[in-house]
Design a protein around this nucleic acid. Sequence first.
DNA 1: TGTGTGACGATCG
DNA 2: GCGATCGCCACAC
Length: 103
Amino acid sequence: MSEFSARVFELVRKIPQGCVSTYGDIAFAAGKPRGARIVGYALHRNNDPENTPCHRVVFKDGSLADGYVFGGKDVQRVLLEKEGVIFTPDGKVDMKKCRFVMV
DNA sequence: TGTGTGACGATCG
DNA sequence: GCGATCGCCACAC
């Protein structure tokens, strides 16, 4: 468990309900602008699923991960919709309204 | 200790 | 416009 992954989890926990963030943004905020994959890897190994809403983390274009997700992208989508996240007809998250930017 | 891999992302063809 | 490939870097084996 590196400082980077710990920071990833911390940032993900900060995403408010009804918002999403991207792997790239989290990686950037955690100090690795090119570390998008590492973020995914870290979440895959998810140390703290109770407090880490990894379903609020999506691709840069708003689409969801395709197969390795906890219960499938459909489940992920439903969870997000329940939280108030807007989806486009494309089946992607409306990044314009729901993208949470780390500051 | 070294090698392979992967919830990504961007660029090339 | 879409598909395939390369690059990134931490972590597991």
